[in-house]
Design a protein around this nucleic acid. Structure first.
Lengths: 138, 138
DNA sequence: TCTAAACAAGACTTATTTAGTCCTCTTTTT
DNA sequence: AAAAAGAGGACTAAATAAGTCTTGTTTAGA
């Protein structure tokens, strides 16, 4: 049970922007500092922008910045900007499992999913200790 | 972020054995009732047996049964018999990410992983309401 | 108003993982 | 010894993940 690499990249990217909150950063800059492949990062930033987590500026002097303060952005939203937190398919959408109606385990998956989402929602980007150099992968 | 189908099958399989705790069930029987492909289920049961969750009996009159009472088996162990709970790769093993040492996000993934594991460990197979017919998928 | 520096977006490609099947072997009861 | 189980490795196909490529649009500034 693992997040996608893309999601890890998104978290690191947001973390980098959080460290330089207030400044506009260009894709190439974020790419180098968060160690994310440039082209791939461009896609990720688009998703974060659509989710309202970052703001993009086009044109010469363009780039990206956080849409809000780091303390107002949590892990859950960043993750869900990239991929759903499902745990089990049925917990996200009953219709994806033919047996949900009668299944005794189904309600447990629903509960588990909600608890996990709460765990993720508790962490925001002001919580992260920017101790020293670190921007690296997790 | 999702468990594998195989893991879902394992949970349903253990749940079925929990419902008929005390009896030995044959693969074909479990397969029909838990709606898991027979050959695939055989593999899953091997993993559950190696993990000490079920006991296998070979030969004629053979089959499988729970190794302990349903209240003594939790979601986490069944899941981890099939796949690790990682969240992010680095949270399972630092060495899988070159940047773990300096990464500011790394410690957060470690915490999150432990909390998620606790959430899963809280659910055991006595907790599951076997209300009516239900054995279906989640 | 032209140009260069940015981002936007969809199509495409490749690698990896998942979800199984198949075949052969061993064990155990009758 | 025969038949009914499980054990285990090799193999395959489908799905998903991870990225690249190409072309287009926006904007600041000379």
């Amino acid at each position: 049970m693992r997040i996608k690499r893309e999601t890890d990249y998104a978290i690191r990217c947001v973390n980098y922007l959080a460290m330089r909150h207030g400044q506009i950063a260009v894709i190439g800059d974020i790419s180098k500092n968060a160690f994310v492949p440039r082209k791939f990062l461009a896609k990720i930033l688009q998703k974060l922008a659509r989710a309202g987590i970052v703001t993009s500026h086009r044109g010469v002097k363009g780039g990206f910045e956080l849409a809000r303060g780091p303390s107002l952005i949590n892990f859950l939203e960043v993750i869900e900007a990239i991929q759903p937190v499902e745990m089990n398919v049925c917990a996200l959408d009953d219709r994806l499992c033919a047996l949900s109606d009668t299944c005794a385990v189904h309600p447990v998956w629903i509960e588990v999913r909600e608890e996990v989402r709460r765990v993720l929602a508790k962490r925001n980007f002001a919580h992260i200790k920017t101790a020293g150099a670190g921007t690296g992968t997790g």
